[in-house]
C-alpha cells in the first residue's frame, strides 16, 4: 500500500486533527482516487480505532474524536467525488425508540455509519414505530437501527419489528438493535435481525446485513 494512504490511516487512528487535511491533499496530489483514499485510508484508520475500542485501549471519547478527524477530511474528498458515490452502501433509518430520549449512543453509531459509506436518516429520539415505518417507505431504506437504553423501553423495539412485519416488509427491511438494555437474547425475543453490542459492532452487523 502507498505510504501516503498509510499516513491517512495513521492520522485517523492517532486522532491527528491538524494533519489529516494535508495528508488527504497529498494523496490527491499523487493521483489517488478519492474513493480509494476513503476505503484504504480513512475507513481502514477507523477500523483500527474500532479494534482499539474493542480491546479497551480506546474509549468512547476516542471514537467520537476519530469521527471528528474524519469530518475534517470528508468534505475535501466529497467535493472530488461523483455525487452518487456518497452513501453508496445504502440508506439506514436510525432512531431512539418511543419513550426514550437518550441519544449519545445513537449519534455515535450514526456518525460511524456515515463515515463508513451509509446514508443515515436520523429521526432523533422518542420516535414512534409509525414514524419509523413511514421513513422507511419514503426513503426506500432497507435497514433500521434502533437504540434503547432502559429495559422498560423494549416494547418500542417490538412495535417497530411488528410494524415492519405487518407492512409486509420483513423480507426486505432488516432491524438492528443496540443500547444498554439490549442483547443477543433480546434480539431473538423481539424478532430483530441484528444486535450491536458496541457502535463498532453495529457497523459490522449493518455491513453483513446490507450484503445479504
Amino acid at each position: 500500500m502507498k505510504e501516503s494512504l498509510i499516513s491517512v490511516q495513521k492520522a485517523v487512528n492517532e486522532l491527528m486533527f491538524d494533519e489529516i487535511k494535508g495528508l488527504v491533499f497529498a494523496c490527491l496530489d499523487e493521483g489517488i482516487p478519492p474513493l480509494e483514499i476513503i476505503e484504504a485510508g480513512i475507513s481502514k484508520g477507523l477500523e483500527l480505532v474500532g479494534e482499539q475500542f474493542e480491546t479497551g485501549t480506546y474509549f468512547l471519547a476516542d471514537l467520537v474524536m476519530a469521527g471528528e478527524v474524519v469530518k475534517e477530511a470528508m468534505p475535501i474528498l466529497e467535493e472530488k467525488m461523483d455525487p452518487g458515490a456518497a452513501g453508496q452502501k445504502g440508506k439506514i433509518v436510525l432512531a431512539t425508540v418511543e419513550g426514550d430520549i437518550h441519544e449519545i449512543g445513537k449519534n455515535i453509531v450514526g456518525m460511524l455509519l456515515n463515515v463508513n459509506g451509509y446514508e443515515v436518516i436520523d429521526l432523533g429520539v422518542d420516535v414512534s414505530a409509525g414514524k419509523i415505518l413511514a421513513a422507511v417507505k419514503e426513503t426506500g431504506a432497507r435497514l433500521i437501527g434502533l437504540s434503547a437504553l432502559l429495559s422498560t423501553m423494549i416494547g418500542g423495539i417490538k412495535e417497530v419489528v411488528d410494524s415492519v412485519v405487518e407492512a409486509g416488509l420483513k423480507d426486505h427491511v432488516k432491524v438492528v438493535i443496540g443500547g444498554a438494555c439490549t442483547s443477543e437474547q433480546l434480539k431473538e425475543e423481539m424478532g430483530a435481525d441484528g444486535y450491536g453490542e458496541t457502535a463498532v459492532q453495529a457497523v459490522k452487523i449493518f455491513d453483513k446485513l446490507s450484503a445479504t
Binding site: L60, A61, V64, G67, E68, E103, I104, N107, I108, G110
Partner: peptide
C-alpha cells in the same frame, strides 16, 4: 452538533 452533545453529556 454531535460533538457538543457528547461533550455536554460528559
Amino acid at each position: 452538533d454531535t460533538l457538543d452533545i457528547f461533550w455536554a453529556d460528559t
